[in-house]
Nucleic acid binder design. Structure first.
Lengths: 202, 202
DNA sequence: ATCCTGCCATAACACTGTTATAAATCTCGA
DNA sequence: TCGAGATTTATAACAGTGTTATGGCAGGAT
């Protein structure tokens, strides 16, 4: 009944090596030979296990979404649903900045994989959708299709994170843009300004 | 005093060919040999004119930002500054969707070269900044640093455009997300809800 | 035991950006 | 006008990439 402590799964090893090298050396480290050496195998494993580099990169992206889901899942759920929503945005940003290269791979369409619209992405989106639905059901946000509400929030978070990572909000004093952005958006979605700002202050 | 009708500038020819091939064949068409053939020269021109492919790609990105600036500049300027702002968001989206691959190159999402914080990007941002400042000065938006106001608007626009291009808002009924997003954000930034929605209806 | 299937290591292929070399072209001052 | 110097270009080669061919190896089913 006992498993090997480290079942040598070349596929998982490759993904692990890819994520590690991605964090340390950046996207240009996602190369078949380099990953094979790091995983202690040869380039053929990339093909017998994944069929090619694009599929391996997609597996990396899946793992990235899994990490994002874990971050969002750990975001608190209190009696102030709007505060929870704003905190979730902060968790989203934190996860993206801590795994910046991975985040780019998750949304990057790199010529072969066309990384669009993955099932894992929709799972992560589900957490945001749930938090938004709570706010609507609680009457904090106007009645509106939760899908479009969550889509607006996701757009804001995603856009802010990418621009911050690109350095556009670097050191020019435009700090705390994300809290303002999400708070203002929540106000536009129907929450009372004072209540929203109080929730943001938490 | 008369110029040649078509002064054969290999540098400009390469950028033109790059932008054309980018639109037709996608990012994987940005290759030295392919561009050289399309521009009627050889790969060495890439190095004598630009110093390498990364520099050429950055020139392409500059041209992309120039097109974006042209689109934003053409956005109307009426007596309803908030309506102008919302229309500018629509123009931003339109430009991005009509040049989707170019848009990705502008922000370096095609793994080629970490395109961060270009001067041309800041020029385009200037148009948004000006439109936001008008709204603040006109009293439609709350007094706040125009930089952070424009940063919030840009984040929303950028994020929405990328997610739409990735297909996440594909056909699942989440239509008209951008107008709602920008309108709601403007409300959160201080505009009266009815006035904002009236401006959006224009 | 035998065959078979899947996986892996080595090496080769086609392709990429880049560089070396030499010829062609342009620049510009005498 | 000219001609030396500098720049650009075309050709070919180099180092690197993803991918594919070719054997060899292990493990399981019959």
């Amino acid at each position: 009944m006992s498993q090997d402590p480290t079942p040598p799964d070349a596929g998982a090893d490759l993904v692990r090596a890819a994520i590690d090298l991605l964090a340390e050396r950046g996207p240009q480290a996602l190369q078949a030979r380099r990953l094979a050496i790091a995983a202690g195998t040869s380039t053929m494993a990339v093909y017998s296990r994944f069929g090619g580099m694009p599929e391996l990169v997609r597996a990396v992206a899946r793992e990235g979404f899994a990490r994002l889901c874990a971050h969002l899942k750990a975001s608190p759920q209190t009696d102030d649903c709007v505060a929870d929503l704003l905190k979730m945005a902060g968790a989203y940003r934190q996860n993206a900045l801590e795994n910046r290269h991975l985040y780019q791979v998750m949304f990057g369409l790199d010529e072969s994989g066309a990384q669009s619209d993955t099932a894992e992405g929709r799972t992560a989106f589900g957490y945001l959708l749930r938090a938004a639905t709570r706010c609507i059901d609680a009457g904090r946000l106007d009645q509106a299709p939760p899908l479009t509400v969550a889509a607006q929030l996701w757009s804001a978070m995603h856009g802010y994170v990418l621009l911050e990572m690109a350095g556009y909000f670097g050191t020019t004093g435009a700090t705390d843009v994300l809290p303002s952005l999400t708070t203002n958006l929540v106000i536009g979605l129907g929450d009372l300004p004072e209540r929203a700002r109080a929730s943001a202050a938490k």
